[in-house]
Amino acid sequence: MNIFRFLGDLSHLTSILILIHKIQTSRSCRGISYKTQLLYVIVFVSRYLDLVWTYVSLYNSLMKLFFISSSSYILYLIKIRFRPTLDPSIDTFSLPYLIIPAAILSLIFNYADEKAWLSEVLWSFSIYLESVAILPQLFLLQRTGEAETITTHYLFALGAYRALYIPNWIYRYATESFVDPIAIISGLIQTALYADFFYIYFTKVIRGQKFELPA
């Protein structure tokens, strides 16, 4: 564990707490993509099911439990508790376009061997799906053209988590020759998806202006 990975994980955890706080205090899931949140549940369940048969550390297990339970709770908040505030007409990104390619890629590029096939395919599927899971949310943002500040803080913390994993990989390569090509390539793509968002966040939201996309 190095500082980059730890801060990245903390940032990820914070982003989820911000999202729950936003939904509960505003009693609304306005501006939040249900589809992105559904994808995160699929990502966490398919990746962290290994919780049952793999033990890395207490930290690792607790985080996995947190990500599975909190993402499921968010889905409950959106789909049941505050369902009337959901506007499906702007959350229109088609999920099969993301899920099917991720599934195909995971069948081709994975770390499966004769001992572990399903768990390895599920793991790479979750990595590929995570790298694009934010797209319905960014698409929704693009459609509405603006966002509540709290939503942009959520997105920033989520993007920062991905960005912090990059120095983590560089550090791990330098200190332990650790290289995980599937995670690294997917992670770089995922971080790149945030580039536009980061630009507007730094030039507007940080200076106290409203998050608005250029017309």
């Binding site: 990975r5 994980d9 990820h12 290994d50 793999t54 890395v56 550390s57 690792n60 985080m63 996995k64 990500f67 770390y111 061997d113 793991w123 994993y165 983590n168 650790f178 995980d180 995670a183």
Partner: peptide, 10 residues
Amino acid sequence: EQHKHVKDEL
């Protein structure tokens, strides 16, 4: 050298 992939990251 290629060794078994360790999944200790989240």
